[in-house]
Amino acid sequence: MLRRARELAMRALFAHTQGGVGLEEAFRHALEEMGEEEDAYSDPLDEEGVAFARRLLQGYQARAEEVDRVLAGTVEGWDFAQMSKTDLTVLRLAVYEMLYEPTPFAPLIEVAVKIANRYGGEHSGAFVNGVLGRLYRRIQEGELAAAPKEG
């Protein structure tokens, strides 16, 4: 369920940032689209999943400058204009979640890579994995603070 919630958040943020659609309108549209799709690999979105997706979006929106600053300092050899917009969107939400949500790092990174593979290009999963791995090391080394993690 949380993978689908993260996909919902990613699709809404992508539509918002790339399509110039208001965030709430993009969220409603993405939710409607996902409700019409079948996904054999995960449970359908329930109220908890929809609320989680909304929390990720609102959290990123509230801390966008900080998340983007951390992301820019973590990505090596790329700037945002050079990056795939899908990869950038996946990374923005994953960085927000790594820094501010209680989600354990390993499953969060795994799901971000799966979403990048599904929606991005041929090398998106590897790129996202590398960036999030560097961010994880920065957190582990004490360079960045992150919310306490569950479990």
Rank of each mutant, 00 (worst) to 15 (best):
A147W: 11
A64D: 11
A112V: 02
K114T: 11
R11N: 04
E66Q: 09
A12N: 04
G125K: 04
R92P: 13
G133A: 05
L88D: 08
R11G: 03
Q82T: 12
M83W: 09
L93C: 13
A126S: 13
A53K: 03
G49I: 05
Q140E: 14
A51T: 07
A15T: 12
E24P: 01
E38L: 11
A94H: 11
L132Q: 01
V90D: 03
H123Y: 08
T86N: 06
E33R: 15
G142T: 09
A112W: 00
L23N: 11
P44L: 13
E7T: 12
K85Q: 15
E25L: 09
N117T: 08
G133C: 01
V75P: 00
G73Y: 01
L108D: 01
A147N: 12
F80E: 15
D87K: 05
T103I: 05
L57I: 10
D43N: 12
R134N: 10
V113P: 08
A53S: 11
A53P: 03
Y136R: 10
V113G: 01
L93N: 11
L31V: 02
T74G: 01
R4P: 06
R55P: 08
E66Y: 05
P148K: 13
D68R: 05
F27I: 02
D87M: 03
T74H: 01
K85R: 15
A112C: 08
F80C: 03
R63K: 14
G125Q: 07
Y119M: 05
T86C: 02
S42Y: 10
A5Y: 03
I109T: 02
Y119D: 05
E24T: 04
F127Q: 02
E36C: 13
E65S: 11
Y100Q: 09
D46K: 07
T89I: 07
